[in-house]
Computed example of a mutant assay.
Amino acid sequence: MEANSEDEGNRSTGGGFVNNRNGAQAMTRQYAKCKYLFLLLLPALVWYTIFSYGPLYGVQLAFKEFRILQGIGGSPWIGFHYFEMMLNGSQDFFQIVRNTLVLSFYHIVFGFPAPIVLALLFNELRLQWFKKLAQAISYLPHFFSWVVLSGFLITVLSPSTGVVNQLLELVHLKPIYFIGDPHYFRFTLVVSGIWKEVGWGAIIYLAALASTDPQLYEAAVIDGAGRWKQLLHITLPSLIPVVSIMLIFRIGGILDAGFDQVLNLYTPATYQVADILDTYVYRLGLEQMQFGFATAVGLFKNVIAFALVLLANYAVRKSGEEGLL
């Protein structure tokens, strides 16, 4: 009996090995069959290797006293000195973190739902030519850099010659310095950010809506459901998986408050409400040449962002939706 059991175990183990070997061979054949498709992936892998993984070598600057003549590898280690200085000795740091969180909060509350609403509005349009025209107009600002758009906004929002303030004067309101007044600067950032990216962000949600089974709408019409009930019970539920994934990404980037936008629009007069972690790192690293301290701040931001991604993914999975991991 024991010998028979051992023989059966050996046969089952051998069978499992054979199945695994056959599976590996089938996968290798599939890869060989699609080798040209993998070649198309090669440029992206090279780009990420050079520009995303290559710079990780410089992360050690956060733990070293950088000396130019000795280079990164030869500079002496100083441990967590920069992190202690960042958390204990830098009075501006917590104000900058607060500015970053406040701006990101505004972007999430007002900016995150904007492309969803726009996609729902586009989905309800029946005139195809008007729908395509409206989509093209909404996409257009995305293709301009903030260098170009900041010049446009400074001109349009100028308190003396800007179109917006001239309209305000027509209704007997005082001109507003949207770019230079700290009370209005965050509002300007959020609104201009939505204007630039809302059309481009709606593409993902329009793709999700296009994949919704049309038979669901036909069945709803037969049951007497109007457009509002179809929106609530078919359209919105079909968007929930995509919204969950995009929300994870957005929460993970909560410490990214829009470096390009802020850098091109803020002035010393608005530093108190506009200076964020990315602009702080830019000034420390490139203007003041404090490479170690700037690297420590950047590393701190990225570690927090990674933790937020994991936390948001966990919350989404607990809610019953599909997460990233």
Rank of each mutant, 00 (worst) to 15 (best):
T279R: 13
Y217V: 06
F293K: 00
L277D: 13
F291G: 02
T267C: 08
H183Q: 15
T212E: 07
L189N: 05
F249A: 11
L255Y: 10
I234M: 04
Y280R: 02
T188D: 02
L284N: 15
D213M: 05
Q230W: 01
V273F: 01
K229Y: 09
A294S: 15
V273P: 00
A294T: 09
P214L: 08
I234T: 06
G201L: 13
Y266A: 06
L277F: 12
Y184W: 15
V262K: 08
F185C: 11
G199V: 05
V281P: 10
W200K: 10
D278S: 15
A210Y: 06
R250Y: 05
I248Y: 02
F300T: 09
K196P: 04
L265C: 08
F259M: 09
L265T: 12
W195N: 02
L284V: 04
G253L: 03
Q288D: 12
G226K: 02
G193P: 03
D278L: 08
P237K: 00
W195S: 05
D213F: 06
V198D: 05
H183G: 11
P214S: 10
G258W: 04
F259D: 10
T279P: 14
F185S: 11
F187K: 01
A274S: 15
V262D: 08
V221T: 14
D256A: 11
A269F: 05
F293S: 00
V297G: 02
F300Y: 11
M246T: 13
G199W: 04
G201Y: 13
L247M: 14
R227P: 12
S192W: 02
I245W: 02
P214Y: 09
A210D: 06
Q290T: 02
A208K: 11
V242R: 07
G252P: 03
L209H: 04
T279D: 13
F249W: 12
N264W: 00
G298K: 10
F259I: 07
A269K: 12
T295C: 00
F300Q: 03
V198P: 03
L216K: 13
S211D: 14
Y282E: 12
K196D: 09
V262C: 07
G298R: 11
P182F: 10
A207V: 14
D213E: 08
Y280C: 07
T267G: 06
P214I: 07
L286H: 07
L236S: 01
Q272L: 12
G199S: 05
V190P: 04
L239N: 07
Y184V: 09
A208I: 09
R186S: 02
T267A: 12
D260Q: 11
Y271M: 11
I245N: 01
P268L: 06
A202R: 01
M289Y: 15
F187T: 14
T267E: 12
S244R: 06
I276Y: 04
R250L: 06
G285C: 04
A296D: 01
D278A: 14
F249K: 06
V190Y: 03
F291A: 01
L247I: 05
E197R: 10
K196W: 11
N264P: 00
G253W: 07
T279H: 13
